Amino acid sequence: MLSDQQIKTILAESRTIAIVGLSDKPQRDSYRVAEYLQKKGYRIIPVNPTIECVLGERAYPSLREVPEPVDIVDVFRRSEEVPSVVEQALEKRPRLIWLQLGVISPQAAEMAAAAGVPLVMDRCLKVEHGRLLG
Protein backbone atom coordinates (compact mmCIF):
# COMPACT_ATOMS: atom_id res chain seq x y z
CA MET A 1 0.00 0.00 0.00
CA LEU A 2 1.34 3.40 -0.96
CA SER A 3 1.69 6.16 1.58
CA ASP A 4 0.09 9.55 1.03
CA GLN A 5 3.55 10.99 0.36
CA GLN A 6 4.28 8.37 -2.31
CA ILE A 7 0.94 9.04 -4.01
CA LYS A 8 1.50 12.80 -3.79
CA THR A 9 4.93 12.45 -5.42
CA ILE A 10 3.59 10.33 -8.27
CA LEU A 11 0.69 12.72 -8.87
CA ALA A 12 2.99 15.74 -8.79
CA GLU A 13 5.46 14.22 -11.25
CA SER A 14 2.90 12.73 -13.67
CA ARG A 15 1.50 14.49 -16.73
CA THR A 16 -0.53 11.94 -18.71
CA ILE A 17 -3.47 9.94 -17.39
CA ALA A 18 -5.31 7.31 -19.41
CA ILE A 19 -8.87 7.01 -18.14
CA VAL A 20 -10.39 3.61 -18.91
CA GLY A 21 -14.16 3.75 -19.07
CA LEU A 22 -14.34 7.52 -19.46
CA SER A 23 -17.87 8.56 -20.41
CA ASP A 24 -18.80 11.47 -22.64
CA LYS A 25 -21.80 12.21 -20.39
CA PRO A 26 -21.10 15.21 -18.09
CA GLN A 27 -23.21 13.76 -15.28
CA ARG A 28 -21.03 10.65 -14.95
CA ASP A 29 -18.30 10.43 -12.31
CA SER A 30 -15.67 9.48 -14.88
CA TYR A 31 -16.37 12.67 -16.85
CA ARG A 32 -16.22 14.86 -13.74
CA VAL A 33 -12.94 13.30 -12.62
CA ALA A 34 -11.40 13.70 -16.10
CA GLU A 35 -12.56 17.29 -16.36
CA TYR A 36 -11.06 18.06 -12.93
CA LEU A 37 -7.75 16.44 -13.90
CA GLN A 38 -7.63 18.43 -17.15
CA LYS A 39 -8.18 21.65 -15.24
CA LYS A 40 -5.29 20.66 -12.95
CA GLY A 41 -2.99 20.46 -15.99
CA TYR A 42 -2.97 16.75 -16.79
CA ARG A 43 -3.34 15.45 -20.31
CA ILE A 44 -6.13 12.91 -20.29
CA ILE A 45 -6.40 10.05 -22.74
CA PRO A 46 -9.94 8.63 -22.93
CA VAL A 47 -10.17 4.85 -23.31
CA ASN A 48 -13.66 3.75 -24.31
CA PRO A 49 -14.66 1.77 -27.42
CA THR A 50 -18.07 3.46 -27.65
CA ILE A 51 -16.97 7.08 -28.08
CA GLU A 52 -14.66 8.94 -30.47
CA CYS A 53 -13.85 12.08 -28.49
CA VAL A 54 -14.45 13.56 -25.06
CA LEU A 55 -13.23 16.74 -23.41
CA GLY A 56 -11.41 17.63 -26.63
CA GLU A 57 -9.33 14.43 -26.63
CA ARG A 58 -9.48 11.52 -29.05
CA ALA A 59 -10.73 8.31 -27.42
CA TYR A 60 -9.11 4.91 -27.98
CA PRO A 61 -10.96 1.59 -27.90
CA SER A 62 -8.40 -0.02 -25.57
CA LEU A 63 -5.19 0.77 -23.72
CA ARG A 64 -3.26 -1.29 -26.26
CA GLU A 65 -4.26 1.21 -28.95
CA VAL A 66 -3.01 4.26 -27.05
CA PRO A 67 0.07 5.24 -29.10
CA GLU A 68 2.02 6.98 -26.35
CA PRO A 69 3.31 6.35 -22.84
CA VAL A 70 1.04 7.10 -19.89
CA ASP A 71 2.01 7.94 -16.33
CA ILE A 72 -1.20 6.82 -14.62
CA VAL A 73 -4.00 4.49 -15.68
CA ASP A 74 -7.27 5.41 -13.95
CA VAL A 75 -9.91 2.67 -14.17
CA PHE A 76 -13.69 3.18 -14.18
CA ARG A 77 -14.80 -0.39 -14.96
CA ARG A 78 -16.66 -3.09 -13.07
CA SER A 79 -14.43 -5.02 -10.70
CA GLU A 80 -14.75 -8.26 -12.68
CA GLU A 81 -13.38 -6.51 -15.78
CA VAL A 82 -10.34 -5.06 -14.03
CA PRO A 83 -7.82 -7.93 -14.41
CA SER A 84 -7.92 -7.68 -18.21
CA VAL A 85 -7.61 -3.87 -18.01
CA VAL A 86 -4.64 -4.18 -15.65
CA GLU A 87 -3.02 -6.71 -17.98
CA GLN A 88 -3.16 -4.10 -20.77
CA ALA A 89 -2.08 -1.33 -18.39
CA LEU A 90 1.03 -3.27 -17.39
CA GLU A 91 2.07 -3.39 -21.05
CA LYS A 92 2.20 0.45 -20.94
CA ARG A 93 4.46 0.38 -17.82
CA PRO A 94 2.67 3.26 -16.03
CA ARG A 95 3.97 4.73 -12.79
CA LEU A 96 0.63 3.97 -11.11
CA ILE A 97 -2.63 2.12 -11.71
CA TRP A 98 -5.65 3.63 -9.97
CA LEU A 99 -8.94 1.79 -9.38
CA GLN A 100 -11.77 4.20 -8.62
CA LEU A 101 -14.19 4.06 -5.68
CA GLY A 102 -16.04 0.77 -5.59
CA VAL A 103 -13.59 -0.92 -7.94
CA ILE A 104 -11.92 -3.78 -6.07
CA SER A 105 -9.82 -6.57 -7.55
CA PRO A 106 -7.34 -8.52 -5.41
CA GLN A 107 -6.31 -10.39 -8.58
CA ALA A 108 -5.44 -7.13 -10.33
CA ALA A 109 -3.53 -5.95 -7.25
CA GLU A 110 -1.48 -9.16 -7.30
CA MET A 111 -0.79 -8.76 -11.03
CA ALA A 112 0.41 -5.18 -10.56
CA ALA A 113 2.54 -6.08 -7.52
CA ALA A 114 4.18 -8.94 -9.43
CA ALA A 115 5.06 -6.47 -12.21
CA GLY A 116 6.37 -3.88 -9.74
CA VAL A 117 3.70 -1.29 -10.57
CA PRO A 118 1.90 0.30 -7.62
CA LEU A 119 -1.89 0.05 -7.58
CA VAL A 120 -4.38 2.12 -5.59
CA MET A 121 -7.77 0.49 -5.11
CA ASP A 122 -11.24 1.73 -4.14
CA ARG A 123 -10.30 5.42 -3.94
CA CYS A 124 -11.29 8.45 -6.01
CA LEU A 125 -8.40 10.09 -7.86
CA LYS A 126 -10.15 13.48 -7.85
CA VAL A 127 -10.75 13.36 -4.09
CA GLU A 128 -7.21 12.19 -3.32
CA HIS A 129 -5.63 14.73 -5.67
CA GLY A 130 -7.60 17.51 -4.01
CA ARG A 131 -6.65 16.29 -0.55
CA LEU A 132 -2.96 15.83 -1.32
CA LEU A 133 -2.23 18.56 -3.86
CA GLY A 134 -5.16 20.97 -3.54
Rank of each mutant, 00 (worst) to 15 (best):
Q27T: 11
D29T: 14
S30M: 01
Y31I: 02
R32I: 11
R32K: 14
R32T: 06
A34I: 14
A34S: 11
A34W: 05
E35T: 13
E35H: 13
L37M: 14
L37I: 12
L37P: 11
Q38A: 10
Q38R: 15
Q38T: 14
K39Q: 15
K39F: 13
K39N: 15
R43S: 03
R43P: 03
I44F: 00
I45G: 00
I45H: 01
P46W: 03
P46I: 00
P46T: 01
P46R: 02
P46N: 10
V47C: 04
V47M: 00
N48S: 09
N48R: 07
P49F: 05
T50P: 08
T50M: 15
E52H: 08
E52Y: 05
C53Y: 09
C53I: 08
V54E: 11
V54C: 13
L55A: 07
L55N: 02
G56M: 11
G56D: 10
G56F: 06
E57G: 01
E57L: 03
E57D: 04
R58D: 03
R58K: 15
A59W: 08
A59G: 14
Y60R: 11
P61K: 15
P61C: 03
S62Q: 09
V66T: 12
P67K: 07
E68V: 07
E68G: 02
E68F: 00
P69W: 02
P69L: 05
P69N: 11
P69C: 05
P69V: 01
V70I: 11
D71W: 06
D71C: 01
I72S: 03
V73E: 05
V73F: 00
V73Q: 03
D74K: 08
F76C: 00
F76A: 01
F76H: 00
R77F: 01
R78L: 12
R78G: 04
R78C: 06
E80S: 10
E81P: 08
E81L: 12
E81G: 09
P83S: 02
P83M: 01
P83F: 00
V85A: 12
V86H: 11
V86A: 12
V86R: 06
E87A: 11
E87F: 00
Q88M: 10
Q88P: 01
Q88R: 06
Q88C: 06
A89G: 13
L90F: 04
L90E: 13
L90Q: 10
K92D: 07
K92M: 06
K92P: 08
R93Q: 14
P94A: 04
R95A: 14
R95M: 03
W98N: 02
W98Q: 05
L99M: 15
L99C: 13
L101D: 10
L101M: 14
G102T: 08
I104G: 02
S105A: 04
S105E: 04
P106F: 04
Q107R: 14
A109D: 08
A109V: 14
M111N: 09
A113D: 12
A114P: 02
A114T: 09
A114R: 13
A115I: 02
G116T: 13
P118A: 15
P118C: 15
P118L: 15
L119V: 09
D122M: 14
D122Q: 14
D122V: 01
D122F: 12
R123K: 15
R123V: 15
C124L: 09
L125K: 11
K126M: 15
V127N: 06
V127S: 07
E128P: 08
E128G: 09
E128L: 13
